[in-house]
Design a protein around this nucleic acid. Sequence first.
DNA 1: ACAAATGATACTAATATGATATCATTACAT
DNA 2: ATGTAATGATATCATATTAGTATCATTTGT
Lengths: 147, 147
Amino acid sequence: MKLITRDTDYAVRILCYLSGKKERTVVVEMVRELKIPAAFLRRIAQRLSKAGILTSAKGFNGGFILSAKPRDIRLLDVAEIFQGSFSLNDCLFKRRICPDRKTCFLRRQILDIEKYVLEKFTSLTVGDILAGGSIDGQKKNNQDRRE
Amino acid sequence: MKLITRDTDYAVRILCYLSGKKERTVVVEMVRELKIPAAFLRRIAQRLSKAGILTSAKGFNGGFILSAKPRDIRLLDVAEIFQGSFSLNDCLFKRRICPDRKTCFLRRQILDIEKYVLEKFTSLTVGDILAGGSIDGQKKNNQDRRE
DNA sequence: ACAAATGATACTAATATGATATCATTACAT
DNA sequence: ATGTAATGATATCATATTAGTATCATTTGT
Ligand code: FES
Ligand code: FES
């Protein structure tokens, strides 16, 4: 089971890479550095752009650039582009099988987990990922708190 | 995204239903009550049986019965039968893309979530689900604690 | 021997994920 | 204005996972 799908994964990489850039960056360059299949990377960049996370420019000096600072790009927003909204309890009502969803204990537990994931993914930003990767430590507090 | 797949979901229902039975119960009866497609329900019961969670008997007075008390059947064990082991961070190493997994902050976060889910699913038993569904309240404490 | 049950297993269908390919559009440079 | 370098939009294909079906073999009580 995957919490993060490949597209999201690639998207995060792309965003991390672009965090180090001040100017627009072209797909071929990203491909060179990130080793992601070109056509796929392009489509991902396009979706990020459409979602407003990247800003793009066509034509000669075109390319992609972050629309916001790394620490203002939340993992949740990125993940939702590719994986839809995070709702973990598709479990039952969809097909109306659970006898009584109001009192369903299992459902409450899953909602709890969902809440936890949501909090993590909301507080986690591209900036955090970058900082955690190189600097390490100290960054732990802002997500060690639930509710 | 689903944390619990349909098979697991059905399995839990089956287990809950069988919790109310002292004698072996036959597939057709479960189908009648649970409205799960017969062939599918049967296959699920068989897998539960193979995993030792149900005990089965062939032939005339055959059927399925719980192998243990409801409160000793953990959701984790059930889920793992149908969904494999719970590891949420398939994210990267599989294809060796993440530059440095030792310091990867994102990975640490996902491991955190994984741990949380594992704890919930380990402490949650069929007994809890039953109790939560009918009695309500009071049962909350044993899973409101992480780590 | 027969009927009632599960055991084992192979198959099909639908959906989600991962990846590719192609044509349209824009923008700069000459 | 024309060519080229870029992204935009979209259609298609491939693979994996999930959901569900079908069938034959085996066991057991009467
Ligand atoms: S409502 Fe989801 S398991 Fe009961
Ligand atoms: S190791 Fe999984 S995101 Fe870096």
